[in-house]
Simulated assay, not measured.
Amino acid sequence: MTASPAGRTAACTRRTKFNPLTWLAAAGSTAAITTAAASWQLSVAVVAACLGLSLAGGTARRVVPAAAAVLVPLGLSLLVLHGLFFPEGRTVLAEWGPSRVTAEGLEFAGQRILQLAAVVMALLLFSFSVNVPDLVAALSARGVQGRFAFVLASTLTLLPAIAARAQRIRQAQESRGLVVTRSRVSRAGAFRLQAVPLVLSLIEDAGTRAAALEARGLSSTGPRTSYREVPDSSLQRTARAVLVLLAVAAVVLRLVQAGSGG
């Protein structure tokens, strides 16, 4: 089921009312606060909120596959690492030689996976929702020029293609006879066969996009004249300042708690 053209137009209209820096501050502060809080309840709430916003904005069909492509391999690695080799684990559920599956290890891995999912979903929602030309114009209007805007624009224009490209690589490998069974060895081999061409193609694509953006003067540090007006308001500027302060406060509080052994 896809959103109607009227629905997509309404979603785009709602997004244009917000400055891209507001979306950036919201995504960055959400990632920082979720990481600092290390609370699975907060992580679940952030994931649910991101799913709801992506459904409302019509980007769920791109955000969810991209998040799955990132979270599935990382989640499996966290389960193996902490589920089998968690030094603080005391409640042993299963044991194979030096490897032990502990309840504490699985709980720790689950919390880290939820925390990672919240961060990934927040950043992907931003990358699939933000208007890149508006973001670059907003950054340039505030004196953020040169390499930072150049790298940011290159990255954001590349992110939406990752999930589709990974799917195409998987289909191409399967057409050449790749068979993935339930064994860990088979899955690890299949992941390697798909990850290597994906990473190489992304590097090549990033170089091509970077050359195109640089040819258009995006990496120049000289004076600029922007013909693109990006809406902003004092309320949004205040909201961005509050979000940044909340993120900094959450990180500082976490560092203080870690230093005091809390």
Rank of each mutant, 00 (worst) to 15 (best):
L78F: 07
S219T: 02
V248C: 13
R168K: 02
R168N: 01
A103E: 09
T22E: 00
Q145V: 03
R176H: 15
L124E: 11
G143I: 01
R112C: 05
R184K: 06
A141T: 04
R216H: 02
R184M: 09
A6L: 14
Q167C: 00
T238C: 10
G83D: 03
V252I: 07
A68M: 02
T2D: 11
A210S: 08
A241L: 09
A56N: 03
A36K: 12
V179Q: 11
Q257A: 12
A11C: 09
T22G: 00
G261S: 03
T91C: 06
S260T: 12
L24N: 02
R147K: 09
V242L: 15
L106K: 03
R170V: 03
H82Y: 15
P223C: 01
V230G: 11
L53E: 06
Q194N: 05
S77M: 08
L156G: 10
S219F: 02
A212K: 01
D232H: 15
A10G: 14
S127E: 10
E204I: 07
R240Y: 13
A161R: 07
S43R: 06
R254Y: 10
S233V: 13
T225M: 03
T225H: 00
V244Q: 08
A48W: 13
L53H: 06
R254L: 10
S226L: 12
A94C: 04
C12T: 15
L93S: 08
A32F: 14
G259F: 06
V64S: 05
L178W: 09
G222L: 05
I33M: 14
T157R: 13
A48R: 07
G97W: 12
A172K: 10
A138D: 05
E107D: 01
G259L: 08
V180P: 06
R228I: 14
E95V: 13
S140Y: 00
T35N: 10
G105L: 02
Q173N: 12
V64T: 01
F128N: 02
